[in-house]
């Protein structure tokens, strides 16, 4: 498959609000991206016509109940079958911020034993509490297994912003240790918050901006095709989006977030 043939569905419902910039990032990486309303996917369009499914950031359905919970239920109720097929065929799914929350609530991540009918993890209220918009450093952990980070990385530390109030990745207390080991064993821990020098954040605020377990910022399913992360790579795609580009005589062309989009393009062009 050639890059230009890759069809990306950036889906939305009421309250989704990062669809445009996410589409722009895919398009700049030479893929075909389309913003599709969830209603359209339920009525007249077919999810299986797309090669990548993207759930962008926002406050889907107001994030009432729990962040991402309402959309996750609707997603699996209306499109569960097709999503399963999508996952089984190793087609990539990306959830950014609210999208990550949706994937976890839908049981699509972490997928310890395949897609789960209940959430196996959660993105809890930040510690310290409150909405937090800031640039963070991310360490690439087991990235070569994941479709969205498999490209040979020129850097091990990425700089990408977060903006959320519920991004603290947690596991059920009684299963925490075992499940964390399992995540490591399966190479599912893709991104961790770290200090600017690349050392693990070790739960230190603000390097770890939300108190996430094991500084986890993004995980994939065991096959590496479904990936969710709290940081927003589409906001760090171009050099002029960086918070300190004025230090140089003009911005660099690209920021670290581009790596995510380039990786998945490479994955698809090689695999299919």
């Amino acid at each position: 498959m050639r890059r230009e043939e890759i069809n990306v569905a950036v889906i939305r419902v009421g309250g989704t609000n990062c669809d445009l910039e996410t589409k722009r990032a895919f398009e700049d990486s030479n893929m075909k991206a389309e913003i599709v309303h969830f209603n359209q996917l339920c009525r007249e369009k077919d999810l299986l016509d797309y090669d990548i499914l993207v759930i962008p950031g926002g406050f889907s359905h107001g994030d009432y109940v729990r962040a991402g919970a309402i959309w996750a239920k609707r997603l699996m109720a209306r499109l569960g079958k097709k999503i399963r097929q999508f996952v089984d065929e190793d087609r990539p799914i990306l959830g950014i911020c609210n999208g990550f929350q949706v994937l976890v609530e839908a049981g699509l991540l972490p997928q310890f034993e395949g897609i789960s009918s209940f959430p196996e993890a959660a993105l809890g209220t930040n510690i310290p509490t409150g909405y937090n918009c800031r640039w963070v450093y991310l360490k690439l952990e087991d990235h070569s297994h994941c479709a969205f980070t498999r490209k040979t990385a020129s850097k091990r530390v990425l700089k990408i912003p977060v903006a959320h109030a519920e991004g603290r990745f947690i596991l059920a207390r009684e299963k925490k240790r075992k499940q964390l080991e399992k995540l490591m064993e399966n190479h599912q821990i893709v991104l961790r918050y770290c200090h600017s020098n690349g050392e693990t954040a070790n739960d230190e605020y603000p390097s770890n901006p939300n108190g996430s377990l094991y500084d986890i910022a993004g995980i994939s399913n065991p096959t590496g095709t479904t990936f969710g992360l709290m940081p927003h790579p589409e906001r760090a795609y171009f050099g002029w989006q960086l918070p300190d580009w004025t230090r140089n005589d003009g911005p660099p062309t690209f920021g670290d977030g581009r790596f995510i989009f380039e990786s998945v393009a490479e994955y698809l062009t090689k695999k299919f």
Partner: peptide, 21 residues
Amino acid sequence: IVRTYDYEVKGNTVIKPLHGE
């Protein structure tokens, strides 16, 4: 206060209210 406002959404903020590190 400023960090509780999303000043990055839409990805078009070139010079931000809070600068750099």
